[in-house]
Amino acid sequence: MPVVKEETVAIGSDADVVLVRQRVRRRAQELRFSLVDQTKLVTAASELARNALEHGRGGEMLLQVLEEPPRSGLRLVFVDRGPGISNVELAMKDGYTTGGGLGLGLGGAKRLVNEFAVESAPGAGTRVTVTKWH
């Protein structure tokens, strides 16, 4: 799948979560995503960036613009340096939280995109990949 553009945004503070939202919004606008799809993707990015910050001790987001005619897409890869998730299935459930939040981050983000994958192991950090197609 050809990646035509790529950029990385570091996630180290809550100001970076805002930056993540802005970068994803700009790319989604460039790809002419509908307003609802833009909003869904930006919201998913915000949830995942905050996860990386709160549970993963920060990390980064890799943003890729995909061209696969006739469709184009945006792929976001969130990588953190945290303790990892020991039970991914449990972590995906709505309402499950270890951070005092609402526990909607992972499961909620999954519902807002077309493709979703989590790779994690205790001690090895977490990598969440989401893709939205247009």
């Binding site: 307003l35 609802v36 833009q38 909003t39 869904k40 709505d94 909607l104 983000a109 519902r111 807002l112």
Partner: peptide, 14 residues
């Protein structure tokens, strides 16, 4: 609340 925000919030589960 903008309509796109309302749609997204419900899918998010909030």
């Amino acid at each position: 609340m903008q309509p796109s925000v309302a749609i997204t919030l419900v899918e998010l589960g909030l």
